[in-house]
Computed example of a mutant assay.
Amino acid sequence: MLKLPFLLTLFSLSVLSAEEPFGRQVSETGVRHSFLLAGATTALISEEGEVLWKTPGKARDGFVLENNNVLVTIGNVAKEFAEGTQDVVWSYQLHKDNQELGSAVRLANGNTLVVERGENPRLLEIDPKGEPVVEVPLQPETERIHMQTRMARKLPNGNYLVPHLLAFAVKEYTAEGKVVRTIRTDLEEWGGREAKTWPFTAIHLENGNTLVNLTNGNRTAEFDSEGKLVWSLSNKEVGGRFADPCGGQRLPNGNTVICSYGQKNGEMPRVFEVDRAGKVVWEFFHPSVGGAHEIHVLTTNGEALGKPLK
């Protein structure tokens, strides 16, 4: 749960900020979110649409931590910034033997989960001193380094959930690197592999299901613990708002927030929220900000959301 001082700071800064409004939020029912946006622009946005904090660089993953610091992966470095500053209080640099650093997630044990892509694709848990203490070899089934993995997360059972784009699979790994479960995303009903339903997110839900954004194939889907499809949406249901969906989040009310990373049309939202029926209930527009890679929604209409499912 986000601490009360953060909320007080958030709303006081939204009044005092000298920044120009950062885009606009649209909702017929009056939904307003504050959120951390990670991507071509990496910034913390108030419910009023003002920039509360930002940092240079293109981020791949991002969280506001319980201590109100911001953890992001920018370039090939995972960085934790002290609240409201550019002061880096923790970091991890990609190992020289690999080429790309992906996810960065602060775990309950205090370690930080990161993903390295390259000749030695792997998950690492990095301790507070910046040292690797857990290494999990990955099986991406491709030599295309950039397409090996995306948003990996740790499960409550201690295993790891990893989306592999060109394998059309979300795989559950043990700490030893054994694959114990695979969720296939090249479903025949979607057109098989020709539909390019590459998994980008792998979000473990409280009911045991997994929420997956399928980049390029322009879908979001939910699978049960056995890998059976139980819910999905495509551009047919959301009026063409999917454009290379990358990051996302399941909200406490059951709605899903989706980042359209590839959206170039300034008349279409960079991020949008849908309910279970596929109705769009909230949108974030900005004419010049592309590359919305990941999002962490913090509050809705002044209420903190707690631990994110993202």
Rank of each mutant, 00 (worst) to 15 (best):
L4E: 15
F6M: 04
L7F: 07
L7Q: 00
L7V: 10
S17N: 10
A18M: 06
A18R: 09
E19R: 10
E20T: 09
E20S: 12
F22G: 03
G23M: 02
G30S: 00
R32D: 08
G39H: 06
S46W: 01
E50P: 03
V51G: 00
W53C: 11
T55P: 10
R60Q: 13
F63A: 12
V64H: 00
N69Y: 01
T73L: 12
V77E: 15
K79H: 14
F81A: 06
F81Q: 10
A82S: 13
G84N: 06
Q86M: 05
D87M: 00
V88C: 11
V89G: 09
S91R: 14
Y92L: 07
L94V: 07
Q99R: 12
G102H: 13
G102F: 10
V105L: 15
G110C: 05
L113N: 06
L113M: 11
V114N: 08
E116N: 01
E119D: 15
P121A: 06
R122K: 15
D127C: 10
V134M: 11
E135D: 05
V136R: 07
R144Q: 14
H146F: 14
M147L: 10
T149H: 01
T149D: 08
T149Y: 05
R150L: 11
L155P: 07
N159E: 05
N159T: 11
Y160H: 04
L161V: 11
V162C: 11
H164L: 09
A167S: 12
F168V: 04
K171P: 08
K171E: 01
T185K: 03
D186N: 08
L187W: 12
G192H: 07
A195W: 05
T197G: 07
A202S: 15
T215M: 13
G217Q: 05
F223G: 11
E226V: 00
G227I: 11
W231N: 09
E237L: 04
E237F: 07
G239N: 08
R241N: 12
G247N: 02
G247F: 09
G248K: 04
P252A: 13
G254H: 13
T256I: 12
I258R: 04
S260H: 06
S260K: 00
S260F: 04
M268N: 03
P269V: 01
P269Y: 04
P269M: 05
P269Q: 00
R270N: 05
E273G: 07
E273M: 03
A277V: 04
K279P: 00
V280T: 09
V280Q: 00
V281N: 02
E283M: 03
G290Y: 03
L298D: 01
T300E: 14
G302Q: 03
A304R: 06
L305I: 02
P308I: 13
L309Y: 04
K310Y: 08
K310W: 00
